[in-house]
Design a protein around this nucleic acid. Structure first.
Length: 437
RNA sequence: GCAGGGGUUCCCGAGUGGCCAAAGGGAUCAGACUGUAAAUCUGACGCGCGAGCUUCGGUGGUUCGAAUCCACCCCCCUGCACCA
């Protein structure tokens, strides 16, 4: 198997390298096929887009001819990583974490190739070895190699040690030892010589390179990726409606596509380098074309398409684009009954109503209860500006007290769906069965 | 414990007896403009379709009327003391 010796240069060009151990040596090391790993702790039942950069990084390495191992932290997830966390985290129960481990295993598997080739990916769970070791062995064989003096000087736990009232438990303080042990273990049993991770993992990674040397005399490397930041300073990966998850049942492909489509101009080319497999030259060309065109840039659409395809596949992308097209062109006619079923499933917020729900209530109440706005005032304001539509019919202010009329049977799509829109982007799908059940 | 300062609507922060649902800024929502953008401008912004209802750390009081005055209590900050 030959390897792409330009990999690190490409990663540098993409701005994907924050730190690495043994600079020049790592370049040479990667001239042969190697095994590398990245860990993902189960802190929820899905990963979110914050994990996308390392996930894609594993894939980049695999495409370049190296063997990726995705480690799911069944053990470390029980402890909690204190790195750069302001507060001690609450522990999740073992059975909950075990359930999350299974979900994450499936999720990380989408991003790398398994098959029969020499550099097929592997998914491992550190509970398999950490769960075996007993306390005395751990303290004597692993703990002895760590200097507390050294550990308390790590930037990642500094604020926890210095901060009044926060503190850090012995449990979390031990986290670094577990992660270091993982690296040593993977080196020993899988010949893994490189760990990658977000830049917040630097301390944990170097802990692992040290431990591997001390335990097995092996030289292993670490490489971190920058934290994804936005030009406007707000946190990446969050919207008003919450975290952008990789799981389609938590963040629909449509919502996912929309997230990327709304990327600011100032960030979009960087994100193309981070989150897609388009070459840096292609991306530079896109940027040049956008600059020259003087109109709406094409980069956001390319980004949204590429990333949605990576995470949700061709089918997910097609659905996302079809829904986008229908919603933003205002042409709901093109939505088939099955499209509406899909919208109901995971496209837009959905509420099922019955005719009885209209009794004694106003449209504002119904829409607020459905979560379209936080107060009736907002709906009222939108009504006054003609910004509320039900199946493309603008609702007048006076209709507020007549929800039955707003959701009249003859306005229904497929005699039960009412796609309600407030403003330009807020949609809500109501379903009302005409039979009074 | 003593002395001083302070707790106001999502956040910051004005307000010291009626003109206060409470200035101003931020955030948020809607409209215009636009590229489903940014910037800008406009409107809304305690709750209620509305009549109206409920707020200014808590409880009670003074008053025709209190975020504003009084009493007690709770919490935060600053200095001093105590402890060491």
């Amino acid at each position: 198997m030959s390897v792409d010796t330009q990999l690190l240069h490409d990663l540098q060009a993409r701005g994907l390298i924050a730190q690495m151990t043994g600079d020049q040596q790592l370049f040479e090391h990667l001239n042969s096929p190697r095994t590398l790993y990245c860990g993902f702790d189960p802190t929820a039942d899905s990963l979110h887009i914050g994990s996308l950069v390392p996930l894609l990084m594993l894939r980049r390495f695999q495409l370049a001819g190296h063997k990726p191992i995705a480690l799911v932290g069944g053990a470390t997830g029980l402890i909690g990583d204190p790195s750069f966390k302001a507060q001690e985290r609450k522990l999740n129960t073992p059975d909950i974490v075990a359930g999350w481990v299974e979900k994450l295993k499936a999720q990380v598997s989408q991003f790398v190739e398994f098959g029969d080739q020499e550099n097929s990916a592997q998914v491992v769970n550190n509970l398999d070895w950490v769960g075996q070791i007993n306390v005395l062995d751990f303290l004597r064989d692993i703990g002895k190699h760590f200097s507390v003096n050294n550990m308390i000087n790590k930037e990642s736990v500094k604020q926890r040690l210095e901060r009044e009232g926060a503190g850090i438990s012995f449990t979390e303080f031990t986290y670094m030892l577990l992660q270091s042990y993982d690296f040593a273990e993977l080196y020993h049993h899988h010949g893994c010589t490189l760990q990658i991770g977000g830049s917040d993992q630097w301390g944990n990674i170097t802990g692992g390179t040290d431990l591997t040397r001390r335990l097995y005399g092996g030289q292993v490397f670490g490489l971190t990726m920058p934290l994804v930041t936005k030009a406007d300073g707000t946190k990446f990966g969050k919207t008003e409606s919450g975290t952008i998850w990789l799981d389609a049942s938590k963040t629909s492909p449509y919502a996912f596509y929309q997230f990327w489509l709304n990327t600011a101009d100032a960030d979009v080319y960087k994100f193309l380098r981070y989150f897609t497999f388009l070459s840096v030259e292609q991306i530079a060309q896109i940027e040049a074309d956008d600059k020259a065109s003087g109109t709406k840039p094409g980069a956001q659409r390319i980004l949204a398409e590429e990333v949605t395809k990576l995470v949700h596949g061709e089918a997910g992308l097609t659905a996302a684009k079809r829904i986008t097209e229908a919603l933003f062109s205002g042409n709901l006619e093109s939505l088939s009954e099955s499209d509406l079923e899909q919208l109901k499933q995971d496209g837009v917020p959905y509420t099922k109503l019955s005719r009885a729900d209209f009794a004694e209530r106003t449209l504002t109440q119904i829409l607020v209860d459905a979560g379209m706005a936080s107060s009736g005032k907002q709906i009222k304001d939108a009504l006054a500006r003609g910004a509320v539509q039900i199946n493309q019919v603008v609702i007048a202010q006076e209709e507020n007290t007549n929800p039955e009329g707003c959701f009249a049977v003859e306005r229904a799509r497929y005699s039960r769906f009412y796609l309600t829109k407030m403003g330009k982007k807020t949609y809500h799908l109501f379903e009302i069965n005409q039979t009074n059940d």
